[in-house]
Nucleic acid binder design. Sequence first.
DNA 1: AAAACGATCTACT
DNA 2: GTAGATCGTTTTG
Length: 204
Amino acid sequence: MKRDADRRTFPPLSRDFYDRNVVAVARALLGKCLVRISDDGLTAGGIVEVEAYLPQGDPASHAHRGPTRRNASMFGPPGHAYVYAIHSRWCLNAVTQPAGIASAVLIRALEPLHGIALMQRRRQVDNVRDLARGPARLCEAFAIDRAFDGWDLTRGEVLWIADPPASAVSGQAPQIAVSTRIGVTAARDLPLRFFLPANPFVSK
DNA sequence: AAAACGATCTACT
DNA sequence: GTAGATCGTTTTG
């Protein structure tokens, strides 16, 4: 089955990957691959910017004031998606740490790797640089909406995060920051270089 | 039921 | 760099 071939090309990250400190997961997600398969085709992109939301003492976290209908996924088990709407757009998080400890990593930017024409069609944007630079932009490019809130990202079906295929290696590290802070500004000048496998660029 | 509030984006200067 | 759009979600009455 083609589905199995895709899962071999993009092996999904395990539950254990997500079941640890949110900052550690955020760092480790840099250089991984977001994969989405729809009826229209496959899109994949390298994660180049993330933002961690802490389980304690983080007033910017949606979970800071306890559970609500919107943030319920953040309180669930690790390895699932938390998708929320902001300003009429969707944003994707990966939930981390054990159930009951509400932490998550916001996926802020991707370097488009595969299915670029499909992303351009979905976004009505030509410039590859602008296709997935920004948490809501990447969701539009990958056709991610509230239907994926709570989605299990470890199954390797429809939507998941994967170890990158060797063909994605460029050897050039993007100058991207991991942040755990409020009011982090989106990167306006992401270099379009996918990096792996270690993630030596962190913090600040 | 109504109002206020954004983990944003786009266009424009 | 910033004003304005825009609508789902939460908070308030």
